[in-house]
Simulated assay, not measured.
Amino acid sequence: MVNFLLLALAFSLAHAHDFAELQGKWYTIAIAADNLKKIEAGGQLRIYIRHLGCNEKCSEMEVTFYVNVNNQCSKTKVTGYLQTDKDYQTQFEGNNRFQPVYITSDKIFFTNTNVDRAGQETNMIVVVGKGNALTPEEHEKLVQFAHEKKIPVENILNILATDTCPE
């Protein structure tokens, strides 16, 4: 947990500068959640990210993605608004609080907490990249984040190959 908090703090300090360089086209590589049903094929939180954007101070982050339900890809764009605790808040299938917690030149790991309309909380990790699968080291980092978020390792889904939605 301490490592996770240190990474979040480090990200917060360099947030706008680092993220501004990483705006653009991204693809969802892996998703993990403590509620597997929400991220399985056809699940309402199985998102296929396409684009990330930030305003000048990164106080607003736009996320463009697809959801594939019943073999029908639906494009969605949400705007996350930076909160005082460094999380972004947006509405999609309920209330979401997300934060980028690990960034490299070609991967970003986000944590997200979704509270649906029924009040059920789902903790998630979404990994996006430039199109390449996770390296063994990145997969180990994902496993570490999953442990910290109390997400079972078997709930980590590599979904890059299942993405059939438009570019």
Rank of each mutant, 00 (worst) to 15 (best):
I49K: 02
C73T: 13
N112R: 02
T90H: 06
D87M: 10
F109G: 09
E56M: 10
F65H: 12
K38H: 13
V127D: 02
Q44V: 10
E140L: 05
N68K: 15
K37V: 09
K57S: 04
T64S: 15
Q44H: 09
V69N: 01
K77Q: 12
V115G: 01
G94P: 03
V69G: 00
K38N: 08
N123E: 04
T111V: 13
R117A: 15
A133I: 12
N55L: 04
Y81C: 00
E93A: 09
V101S: 01
F109V: 13
R97M: 05
A118T: 10
V101A: 02
Q91A: 09
N55Y: 03
E138Y: 00
V126P: 00
C58L: 03
A41F: 01
Q99P: 00
V115M: 04
M61E: 07
M61D: 02
F92C: 01
G129L: 00
F98Y: 13
G94A: 07
F110T: 06
G43Y: 11
K38F: 11
F110K: 03
R46H: 11
G42L: 05
E40N: 10
E121H: 06
T90G: 01
E121S: 14
Y66H: 13
Q91K: 06
L134C: 09
I103S: 06
T76P: 00
E93D: 13
S59L: 03
E56D: 14
G119T: 07
G43E: 14
N96L: 07
C73G: 12
Q99T: 01
N123C: 06
E121T: 15
A41N: 05
F92N: 05
K57H: 08
E140V: 03
A118E: 10
L45C: 10
Q91D: 09
L82G: 09
E93S: 05
V128L: 02
T111Y: 07
Q89E: 14
G94M: 07
T84H: 06
V127N: 01
T76N: 07
I125F: 02
T135L: 07
D106L: 02
G119A: 13
Y66D: 10
G53C: 03
N70F: 04
N112A: 07
I108N: 03
E137S: 12
I47N: 08
N114G: 07
T104P: 00
E121D: 11
